[in-house]
């Protein structure tokens, strides 16, 4: 009985942790895609503005705007490259937890049967 209770507590906190992990991973992926999309729009626009083809209005000075938009583009691209390893790691943790939970549950029930 003691073993089964321990398993339940362990399982509950494990599930909470997995949900947190899922949320963090989703935030990471959406941030990466958002930054990439912003950079893809902003950087070419700023370049066209520097070339005099487009009028770009901003509260930021044009040179600083060019650096920031290039930075956002690179950061978005970099984070997008990292999205696959991050998702893979999250999936690894999740599948390992589920497998280990199944093994522990099995063991808990076996232990219970043996004791009774």
């Amino acid at each position: 009985m003691r073993y089964r209770s321990f398993f339940r507590v362990w399982y509950f906190f494990g599930c909470v942790g997995l949900v947190m992990l899922f949320i963090v991973t989703a935030c990471y992926v959406f941030t990466a895609l958002g930054l990439l999309a912003l950079g893809v729009v902003a950087f070419p626009s700023v370049m066209l503005g520097r070339l005099g083809i487009l009028t770009v209005t901003s509260d930021i000075q044009s040179g600083a705007l060019l650096l920031i938009s290039a930075g956002v583009l690179l950061l978005g691209a970099g984070m997008s490259f990292g999205a696959i390893p991050v998702c893979r790691s999250a999936y690894g943790v999740l599948s390992r937890f589920v497998k280990r939970a199944a093994v522990r549950r099995e063991r808990a029930y076996n232990e219970e049967d043996t004791t009774s």
Binding site: L67, A77, M79, P85, R88
Partner: peptide
């Protein structure tokens, strides 16, 4: 996967440096 990790670190670092430089310039 290793290549993606390297690209992620390089791009993010350069991007963060550029954003920092832009903010400083502004």
């Amino acid at each position: 996967i290793r290549l993606l990790k390297i690209l992620c670190v390089v791009f993010c670092t350069v991007g963060a440096v550029l954003i920092g430089a832009g903010i400083f310039m502004q």
